[in-house]
């Protein structure tokens, strides 16, 4: 067994775009186990922080450190984007793609992808071109593909935005199962209800900074900052 890549240490990370600071400085540690949920209003920096942790953003300051050399961590983490990106090929080939990238033979990769697709409830769609799927089906496909390499860390950016309650329930169930199987889940949501249902730990962002970090129970029982309190109560922030 190789050494785990967690905990992830975010150390003084700052992102600037067009001269404006959109994130940071942020320092935090993501430990293994459970689901960590990023909360905060639109524009508070949730997406930027997730992307920075996954290595999709160029950092203007600070560093993101894993417990293994960066190159080794790449294939051991995955990301599900808010607007799911699907490859213009069949559902089956989409799900099998990460394995193909790893050099697994196409036949084998497809067989494993088919088995895996059943777990997320899209076994009936395997031969369909991915672009014609509904929003919920695309998100399930993206999730199945992200889990294909059995990542140690899975980042999700608002995975249930724009989905109906049923698709949301399905996706939450998949996430819970993945977390139980040992995948660390770090996700953002603006839906306080979803955060209550899933989170073990909450990171609350406001204007590009993490202003509150607490176990979920404590956070929801007694938010420490006025912004978090307002958000949890459903008030509109000034």
């Amino acid at each position: 067994m190789v050494a785990p890549i967690l905990p992830l240490v975010v150390d003084g990370v700052v992102l600037r775009r067009r001269g404006r600071r959109i994130l940071g400085p942020v320092s935090l540690t993501i430990e293994a186990g459970g689901i960590t949920v990023l909360m905060g209003p639109n524009g508070s920096g949730k997406t930027s922080l997730l992307r920075a942790m996954h290595g999709l953003e160029r950092l203007n300051d600070g560093a993101v450190r894993w417990q293994a050399p960066l190159d080794e961590t790449r294939a051991r983490q995955a990301f599900v984007f808010q607007a799911p990106i699907v490859l213009r090929r069949s559902v089956l080939d989409n799900i099998a793609y990460p394995l193909v990238l790893d050099g697994v033979r196409r036949v084998v990769a497809r067989a494993r992808a088919a088995a895996h697709a059943a777990d997320v409830g899209i076994a009936g769609l395997l031969d369909r071109p991915a672009q014609v799927l509904s929003g919920g089906e695309k998100q399930k496909l993206a999730l199945a593909r992200a889990l294909m390499r059995k990542p140690e860390v899975l980042f999700l950016d608002e995975p249930c935005a724009n989905l109906d309650p049923r698709a949301t329930r399905d996706i939450e169930a998949i996430l819970r199962r993945a977390a139980e199987a040992g995948t660390k889940i770090v996700m953002s949501t603006h839906d306080a209800g979803q955060a209550r249902r899933l989170a073990a730990e909450i990171l609350f962002l406001h204007e590009g900074r993490v202003i509150e970090a607490a176990p979920a129970d404590a956070f929801f029982a007694n938010p420490q900052t006025p912004e978090a309190r307002a958000h949890v109560n459903g008030d509109l922030l000034p």
């Binding site: 999709l56 995955a78 990301f79 984007f81 990106i85 490859l87 213009r88 090929r89 793609y97 990238l101």
Partner: peptide
């Protein structure tokens, strides 16, 4: 256009430069 669409995903999946080209040529 396809690359704009695929960019984040292929980076996230850690596809090599050659694998990215392959995916773009095949899907395009």
């Amino acid at each position: 256009d396809l690359w704009a669409d695929y960019h984040d995903l292929l980076i996230s999946l850690h596809a090599s430069r050659w694998q990215r080209v392959q995916a773009l040529l095949w899907d395009g």
